[in-house]
Design a protein around this nucleic acid. Structure first.
Lengths: 345, 345
DNA sequence: GCATGCACTCGCCGCCGCCGCGCGCTTGAC
DNA sequence: GTCAAGCGCGCGGCGGCGGCGAGTGCATGC
């Protein structure tokens, strides 16, 4: 199937995909003959199309309709034929501006990014928020609530605040909690959460002497606060954009898609695959392995903090999307987000 | 128009609405004759229907189709005829359980509530998150970021954490910021934000003497941190549920609806009206005043914290919804949310 | 006041024939 | 061998037609 196309067939396939992406209607030989500057007659083009059809790159929806790219056709187009269209200066600047303006917590930034991405792409956009496991502690704070409940506030990474209510085994006073927080801040600030957890466990065992009593207690409280919740999450924006595409008109399927996006679990598995990729990755239709994404493509790119992969962003749209615009858009946004995160520190 | 219906007409209207809500198809005189236990012939019922038609409570989509309730019909039904169906014990317990399990911050609780509400109703659900203006400060904390940027962490109400990055006029050291935070925590904890803002302003003017210098500085920083951002917000869940109703099949209109829900601004204006209401409030179709909600109804109820109205929750669905189930559901959830918020303290 | 019977009006659905597009095939030129 | 021209054909889309069933309005009778 990884068949190599001769240059004329490739040119025509490229033309066909571009045309189909633009109009959304099966492309006939006449149209290609006129659109291409290669001075071929429709008849000749029909011959080429027959070859492409046989090879699985295009198909006609029915006898005597034009041709439409198949999944394989899109794949070949993207891998070998696509000429990306650089983002307009306006868009580049807009991305930079929006992402730099807010130095806020990562969660907000993810929302802003996905909103921006969905606007610029005209499709649905997704930004995963980084796993907590990859975060480094900057500061911790405890506040007593009612009896055996304590509010823990964590500042991680640069300016990201997380908080959670923990249930403790016994009651702690405000002063006591403050002491523990201070102890942790003093000893452990700058560590990333997993190693922090390990260190706390180790220290709690070692610190048997009486003077270190409070360190042991601190470790106990912190253990609750830092408890492993490595569940990743993502932010979706512009889902309503998908309603505008006539190829996604089947309300039933659309509903399934939205529900899958709401459930998040399965989708996260897909995005996690993209963490490995070094750059833009594209799933065309069923390539993603998810039924609900049948007629959709997903274009993703990982983004980085301090050279470390932090999360994934991407857009979801109909298979017939303007890849030549979308791919640079996603790539650029991933880049800008990384610098936005850095600037927010 | 506030015409009083005689008891037979009322009974028939009630029957018709119930039937139509159930099946979604125009209800004919035969159906009503068989469904009602009043032993009337279809012809008699036709006469009554003609009256109801004339009075504007029902209409036929076309000659020789059954009748369908109008907006006015729904209104009369809800105001005077409806027999609410108490929630099942299971549902009541489920609501209580889900809302009490999480003692987390309000923002999370709003998400949980809306998810729950959308699940139980099978429609879209909305929960506004309380205005910051109504919050009382529990604790404040400052962390220096890069040069003239400071991360402010506010704990308000019971266990709710807010944070924002502020840009300051000059650079502050960590120690300095800590002093200010302490000063504020000491003097002003327990105040609600608006009065806190006023007090800070007054004190800053009064404290001219040198000893109070740091209080003045503290006020300055805090002013940035507490800056008025009274923009209310809400959480939407279960939007995809709306795709399941055949009366909301027009993709174009659906898109407009989703976009309006995304924009939030207009919708918030609607919800703010509901803050005044003492209990469940219902907007049928155009009653809301919003084009996009043409074929939808909105059922809302305010919820309270410590006896003070805090926000609004509600569901959005097709005009043809099972009001007798939805109204108690919304009422109950509002109640449960209030106690959930209290328990989370 | 209510029931019976009848004519009438629509919307829904399947049927049919027309139209036009775009293909495959054949043939012929270079 | 490569390509263009011409021809017949197959098929989806569209609009008009007619039968059907549901449910109404009206006249009439108890």
């Amino acid at each position: 199937m990884a068949e190599r196309l001769d240059s004329r067939a490739a040119d025509l396939l490229k033309l066909l995909v571009e045309r189909y992406v633009q109009d959304g209607q099966p492309v006939g030989s006449r149209t290609l003959a006129r659109a291409g500057h290669m001075n071929l007659s429709p008849a000749t083009i029909r011959n080429v199309m027959a070859d492409l059809d046989e090879a699985g790159f295009v198909r006609s929806p029915h006898t005597s309709a034009g041709r439409v790219p198949t999944q394989l056709g899109y794949r070949y187009f993207i891998d070998s034929l696509l000429t990306p269209e650089p983002l307009s200066e306006r868009d580049v600047q807009r991305i930079a501006r929006e992402l730099l303006r807010h130095g806020g917590p990562t969660c907000d930034l993810a929302e802003i990014t996905s909103a921006l991405l969905s606007q610029l792409s005209g499709m649905a956009a997704v930004v995963t928020v980084p796993k907590r496991n990859r975060a480094t502690l900057r500061r911790i704070e405890f506040l007593p609530l009612s009896e055996r409940r304590v509010l823990a506030i964590l500042v991680v990474n640069h300016a990201e605040v997380q908080n959670r209510v923990i249930s403790t085994a016994r009651e702690y006073s405000a002063a006591e909690l403050e002491r523990y927080a201070n102890a942790i801040n003093e000893h452990f600030a700058g560590l990333d959460l997993p190693t922090l957890r390990n260190r706390l466990r180790a220290d709690a065992l070692a610190a048997q002497s009486h003077v270190h009593q409070h360190l042991r207690e601190a470790a106990k409280v912190a253990a609750w606060a830092l408890g492993d919740d490595s569940e990743e999450d993502y932010v979706l924006a512009g889902g309503s954009n998908l309603l505008a595409y006539q190829e996604l008109t089947d309300v039933k399927r659309l509903r399934e898609l939205f529900e899958a996006l709401d459930r998040k679990r399965e989708m996260l598995a897909l995005f996690e695959q993209c963490l490995q990729a070094s750059g833009v990755q594209i799933f065309i239709g069923e390539e993603s392995g998810y039924q609900v994404l049948d007629e959709c493509s997903v274009v993703t790119a990982p983004y980085f903090i301090d050279g470390q992969v932090a999360g994934v962003l991407g857009v979801i749209g109909p298979t017939r999307m303007a890849y030549h615009r979308i791919i640079p858009l996603v790539a650029e946004t991933a880049l800008a987000l990384a610098t936005g995160l850095k600037a927010g520190s």
